[in-house]
Nucleic acid binder design. Structure first.
Lengths: 123, 123
DNA sequence: CGTGCGTGTGAAGAGGTGCTCATATGAGCG
DNA sequence: CGCTCATATGAGCACCTCTTCACACGCACG
């Protein structure tokens, strides 16, 4: 097996064990995608608004979150495609709500972490 | 406060209530930053490895996660600056471990969401 | 039935993010 | 003591993301 250029490994057993225990790549990428959705302040504000407001239309969401209606529409599209929010149409209005409670749990858990420890800059 | 250009609002009361209930901007940005750290497959793999391996050096982490040592070092630096991981130095080795249990909770919660519902593409 | 309003979408540009390559630092080893 | 190994870091570059602008679409209302 060849020492490729420099395959430095200290604890080969642990490396093998860890490699075997890593979640499949699909799970990892799905996770990254979900957390990516939560990594934008604009989307976070929309979700926070929906957590509080229950069900809101695009224009109210935009007003409440201080964003343009276009930006909100784009953001909601992303969230919709990833099943984070659901739409209810009534006439020309579109009312959005959160699809499940996972978002609330992730939101609260993250918020706990953030408020508990500023996690700012440090070395 | 006047009607600015086109301040479309359907339910002004709800908008006000939601605006009042939104977390402060600092919390929102902190949240976004934390989730942003979790939104990269490479970092996610590192964290998964540390969840399993407990404490590992950079080169083993790189081998286990299939990334270059440089990339791992950069990633660990980010995680370190955000207090997600801690270092223990021994000679010229650097052993990393997770700083707290929040990561495990977020990881598992997200994983539940992902494996439960593929959250792929849909309209 | 045409016009206005709420919403959705595409293109394009600015900005951010993560990689690699090259090099620095510092500890151990011969 | 100089050399090498493990890690850290900086610069540069490719990629992705988010925002705005412009316009399309459908429904309601006159």
């Amino acid at each position: 097996m060849s020492t490729s250029s420099h395959a430095r490994v200290v604890d080969a057993d642990r490396v093998s064990a860890v490699m075997a225990s890593l979640p499949p790549e699909t799970a990892i990428e799905g996770l990254a995608q979900v957390f990516g959705l939560l990594s934008d302040p604009g989307r976070l504000r929309l979700m926070a608004a929906l957590l509080e407001g229950g069900e809101m239309c695009v224009c109210d969401l935009a007003a409440a979150c201080g964003q343009s209606e276009s930006a909100v529409s784009h953001a909601l599209r992303l969230l919709r495609l990833n099943r984070v929010v659901k739409v209810r149409r009534s006439g020309r209005m579109a009312y959005y709500r959160l699809a499940d409670s996972h978002v609330r749990m992730l939101f609260d858990l993250g918020l706990t972490h953030v408020t508990h420890d500023e996690a700012g800059s440090h070395d």
